[in-house]
Design a protein around this nucleic acid. Structure first.
Length: 417
DNA sequence: TCTGGGGTCCTAGGACCC
DNA sequence: TCTGGGGTCCTAGGACCC
């Protein structure tokens, strides 16, 4: 049996955990660059804000004036996610983090009443991590996800939904829209609608071959999972990641190569840091830049993917990124976004030694260790290659950022009693 | 002025091989 | 008239997720 724990309006709940004045108020958290709403409390939904609404339009709507806006603060949310994870680990043997705000539990062999355990988990996450959440239970991950969704929709309910019994599912499926199912996106819903399939019950009743023809093996697996057959097993060990990206929209258009160079170099710095934190090496890189597709600027978009010498060295990655960037750079464009993606990642330990390395691997490792040590101790970008720039006019907007309550000593909450 | 960022998986089609 | 049958690997693009 699986359980899925999903935090309610996670980013907003994190903001509320440290600023109790936000309780009961409509709150929305903005995407990077303060672009659009990506997390909303129920109060925010109730007054008409929708996921994805652009901030610059929503801020002008009279009915949305009560909203409290926050820029996204991923340092805070990541840390809160870790707290939830640790809270859960204190209650069950294994936890599989699925996303920043969702964790699967394997309840196989966990003693006691599942409903009681779920209620306890919910209360404990609220008390210890200060985050409200809902719990869904089912014999497969897809059913547990669905149960969670049902639990969430019942605002005044217990916050727990148990779909472990076949009979209970049979009663529930006819009234659940197929689009509520994990893995059923817009395109699949539209295809099913053409076949007059709109509810989970109707989907489950389709012949498996027909589902496969219509939605490929992905849809067929989802159907099997809804019928109670496990296709997505519990994953105890964290999956090794295959790619890693650092991409950003600019706070204002970038017009000069010098600025683009700074941007690409600083993305490479971040990418290299992530790579080393996960103890990985990258064997290929993708670099892209583009103008804004939403306005009338002349369109230009270019991208290059190429192999690189297996490395987690900041200076090497900067060199690779800038060489590729320089080749695709065109004067006169108003660049709006650029990014770096590292591909073909391998564990650093498994990577065979390069017989003809372009830099001394020992020296590189020592230099990177020193760089990371300084930046860990004194803060990100304390030490950074000069080409990544010191004053940067192009960085993203984050005008409504909350303090880094849990990850920066100067911004920690002070309590007076 | 103003519309995010970061992932995974699958499929189709081309190149190439025997 | 007639032009096989499998493979593999790679890439671009679609779909989906949070």
């Amino acid at each position: 049996m699986f359980a899925l724990i999903d935090a309610n309006s996670f980013y907003c709940s994190c903001e509320r955990a440290f600023d109790p004045r936000l309780r009961g108020l409509p709150v929305a958290v903005l995407s990077n660059n303060d672009g659009c709403a990506i997390a909303l409390t129920r109060e925010a939904k109730d007054i008409g804000l929708k996921m994805g609404d652009p901030y610059h339009l929503a801020a002008k709507r009279p009915e949305l004036q009560p909203l409290v806006w926050r820029s996204s603060n991923y340092a805070l949310y990541g840390d809160m996610s870790r707290r939830i994870f640790e809270t859960l680990l204190g209650m069950v043997p294994v936890v599989e983090p699925y996303s920043i705000d969702e964790m699967f539990l394997d309840l196989e062999g966990v003693p006691g009443d599942l409903a009681q355990l779920s209620a306890d988990i919910r209360a404990c996450v609220r008390r210890v991590a200060k985050i409200p959440c809902c719990v869904g239970i089912g014999p497969t991950k897809t059913i547990a996800k669905l149960a969670n969704k049902v639990a969430k929709q019942d605002h005044n309910g217990p916050g727990v939904c148990d779909f472990s019994e076949e009979e209970i599912r049979q009663r529930a499926y006819p009234s659940i829209a197929i689009g509520d199912v994990w893995g059923m996106g817009r395109a699949s819903v539209a295809k099913l609608k053409k076949q007059n399939v709109e509810t989970v019950a109707e989907f489950v009743a389709m012949p498996n071959d027909q589902v496969r023809d219509l939605l490929t093996v992905v849809g067929a697996k989802t159907q099997a999972e809804l019928q109670g057959r496990v296709c997505f097993p519990f994953n105890d060990a964290p999956a090794t990641r295959k790619s890693l990206a650092v991409t950003r929209s600019f706070g204002r258009p970038v017009l000069t190569w010098t600025e683009m160079e700074q941007a690409l170099a600083s993305y490479a710095v971040r990418a290299a840091e992530k790579l080393r934190r996960h103890r990985l090496m990258a064997n290929a890189m993708q670099v892209f830049m583009r103008t804004n597709e939403f306005n009338n600027d002349p369109r230009y978009s270019n991208q290059a993917t190429f192999e690189i010498e297996g490395a987690a060295d900041t200076l090497a990655l900067i060199g690779d990124a800038l060489r590729a960037g320089r080749r695709m750079w065109r004067d006169g464009c108003r660049y709006f976004k650029a990014g770096i993606v590292l591909l073909d990642l391998k564990p650093a330990a498994d990577t065979p030694a390069n017989l003809l390395p372009s830099r001394d691997p020992e020296q590189s490792a020592r230099l990177m260790a020193a760089l990371d040590a300084v930046n860990t101790r004194y803060g990100q970008r304390t030490l950074s290659p000069a080409v990544a720039g010191i004053t940067r006019g192009w960085t993203m907007r984050r005008e409504r950022l909350s303090p880094r309550y849990t990850t920066h000593i100067d911004e920690i909450l002070v309590v007076t009693a």
